[in-house]
Design a protein around this nucleic acid. Structure first.
Lengths: 207, 207
DNA sequence: TCACAAACTGAATATATGTTCATGTTAGCA
DNA sequence: TGCTAACATGAACATATATTCAGTTTGTGA
């Protein structure tokens, strides 16, 4: 929890706090940081403007708090789905699918993440660096086990994040044609990765 | 040219107009749309605030104008470099390299493009849809000529844009380690694409 | 040189909105 | 029941800044 955030203690106050969080998430999603006013948030939460400042010292700190929650939530969602799969190939497919579906359910997700580039550059950096770091661990294991070709996994992690983010962007913003079938799109991506990234699945020793 | 922009006619006015364009580009790059005031722009351009409104009806229209110029400039730069190459493989490598180097020279480029997601959603859509459309043409030709495997080129174009953008982001924002050698990074990307996207170069009929 | 339109100025205006604070209300406990 | 601290209110304040406009300067053609 952000050090400047004052957490509520009583039952009612906890509900108020949550109402503000929920309202902020919703309205930041929809209108972005600059497009959102404190009044938007407090109106939607059904509290007075002053109440906001009982818990959060500023709009910026609230935004940072919401972004952190969102980033944890996405990672948790992806990790739980990916952990169900056995091979790295299946994990990769599941990760891409989960990300896209997550984005489809929250079409304005990109707003809040990419906007941090202007609001809080360090937060943006941290977000992708730690995302890449986690990705890299899985990839390193797959390289050791011979499932993935021996490549610089740091570069590979950005390649995969780039693919996932832009395919997600295409689907969510309905860019171009043929966005109906998420599975078909993921199939195309995996066709590229199958030959480009993975070794032959039946023969882990092959180059 | 944006219909609401009043273009200057006399020699001096043309210089004033250019000074405003240049100042806006620089300061939008650095501080983004919301981080930039009209005063920032006019001060840097060396003109009075009112002068701005002789040519542009609003800050938003100026931003749209600058984004369009930037997008044309990037595409022209990439196209000119890519056209020097013969094979699609070499074109692809050159395209990625050119994009990264362009971004390295203008590290704040992402600001102005990605921020349009909040400023003018349609402009953002148009930017990537038309970028993808142009990409797709080249890919279709390469598929016809057997250099690239038979894949949905629309999906492939977003895969490639995603890779390029995130590798560029990594290098520009110095995300993670090992960002010194752009060529080495591009090598890794091309290793993936060589097997994942392209057919064997000596045998265009092979699957 | 003069007239006139185009170009330019920058202080004033209008508005938006993040934040504060004096005041009121509620919940839990002695 | 009454006390107290936490919680809540919303009008007022402070500031920032996009835009306007009445007045001034400049360049150019006759």
């Amino acid at each position: 929890m952000h050090p400047q955030i004052k957490e509520p203690t009583t039952r009612n106050a906890i509900n108020t706090f949550k109402a503000i969080e929920d309202a902020a998430l919703e309205v930041f999603y929809k209108n972005g940081y600059h497009g959102t006013t404190i009044a938007d948030i407090t109106n939607r939460a059904g509290v007075a403007a002053g109440t906001f400042y009982l818990y959060f010292p500023s709009k910026l700190v609230l935004y940072q708090h919401i972004l952190m929650s969102l980033s944890h939530d996405i990672r948790k969602e992806i990790a739980s789905k990916v952990n169900e799969k056995e091979t790295r190939y299946e994990k990769e497919r599941e990760g891409i699918k989960t990300f896209i579906n997550y984005a489809l359910e929250r079409p304005e997700m990109y707003n809040i993440i990419w906007e941090s580039l202007y609001i809080d550059r360090d937060l943006f950096r941290d977000y992708y660096i730690s995302f890449a770091g986690r990705y890299r661990k899985g990839l390193n294991r797959a390289v050791e086990e011979g499932e993935i070709r021996s490549l610089d996994t740091e570069v590979v992690s950005y390649v995969l994040m780039g693919i996932t983010n832009f395919i997600g962007l295409k689907v969510v913003m309905d860019l171009g044609e043929e966005n109906e079938d998420v599975d078909a799109i993921v199939d195309v991506v995996m066709e590229i990765l199958e030959k480009g990234l993975f070794r032959k699945r039946q023969d882990p020793s092959a180059q």
